[in-house]
Nucleic acid binder design. Structure first.
Length: 256
DNA sequence: ATGGCTTCATAGTGAAGA
């Protein structure tokens, strides 16, 4: 029996609900972290998801952001936001699913180097790493999933020269992500040999998906205990090929 | 080529995403 964990930035749960239901039926994940639900809690499609066999905890708002954790088992010990980091956007939800502490994240985009939003992104990462360091001590079975909005290395970028120094790949952002991983987490995707040029996001413009002009910015980070149990991690590009897709593809990890 | 596409909030376009 494996435990399948996944993360997917759906870019509007309302628009993507048919794709999500189709994907849940095909991929059969045990727990899924969603980002950019762009849905107020009152409008969350709980009935439809329960009909597909999933419980859900969620934290949303109108128009932007919004995160959720879906699972076959009812998530417990739900936490919203980073403790002691007041933040209006709904970017963080954590819950326990079976014996795994699941943290679902939607990192700030950062917009442009040197902007206020960039500074906010770096501050957010700082607070996140401090919190998760503590969370890891309390929960040896910790899984951190989400749209982290950073491509950690040049091999996670379709054209490193074109992207050099840009948002999502700048050195301060990569340092912030390394600091997060260095609390003792493993990038599940890099535990395995992977094809070259595997990405999780492609711009809607310029037929970027068809040209595989993408970035790997959606991640699954695992505590040592879970990394030891991890037997596979892949990016599922199939929903990106559908009509009116999310610009992100799901990332999936299987635990023994 | 500083655009290109998509979403949402709007009822014209504009902001934001990445």
């Amino acid at each position: 029996m494996t435990f399948r964990l996944a993360t997917w930035n759906v870019n509007s749960l309302k628009v993507r609900l048919p794709h999500l239901l189709d994907w849940l039926a095909r991929a059969k994940p045990d727990a899924v972290c969603l980002q950019e639900t762009k849905t107020e809690d009152a409008n969350f499609p709980l009935v439809e998801l329960q009909g597909a066999g999933y419980q859900a905890v969620f934290c949303g708002q109108k128009a932007y952001n919004g995160v959720a954790i879906l699972a076959h088992a009812m998530p417990t010990e739900v936490q919203h936001g980073i403790p002691d980091f007041p933040d209006d956007p709904k970017r963080v939800i954590a819950a326990t699913v079976n014996d795994v502490r699941v943290v679902c994240l939607y990192a700030p985009n950062g917009q442009a180097l040197g902007s206020d939003k960039y500074q906010y992104k770096l501050r957010w990462y700082e607070a996140l790493a401090a919190w998760l360091e503590d969370e890891l001590r309390r929960n040896p079975r910790l899984a951190v999933l989400g749209d982290l909005n950073v491509a950690p290395e040049d091999r996670d970028v379709h054209d490193p020269k074109r992207w050099a120094g840009q948002i999502h790949v700048s050195e301060p952002e990569r340092a912030a992500m390394r600091k997060l991983v260095d609390i003792g987490l493993a990038d599940a995707f890099r535990l395995f040999e992977q094809p070259h040029k595997e990405f999780s996001w492609w711009d809607y413009r310029l037929a970027a998906f068809q040209r595989n002009w993408g970035l790997r910015i959606d991640h699954i980070f695992l505590s040592p205990q879970l990394a030891q149990r991890c037997i596979a991690c892949t990016i599922d590009k199939s929903p990106r090929k559908l009509e009116r897709p999310s610009d992100h593809a799901p990332v999936v990890a299987d635990l023994q």
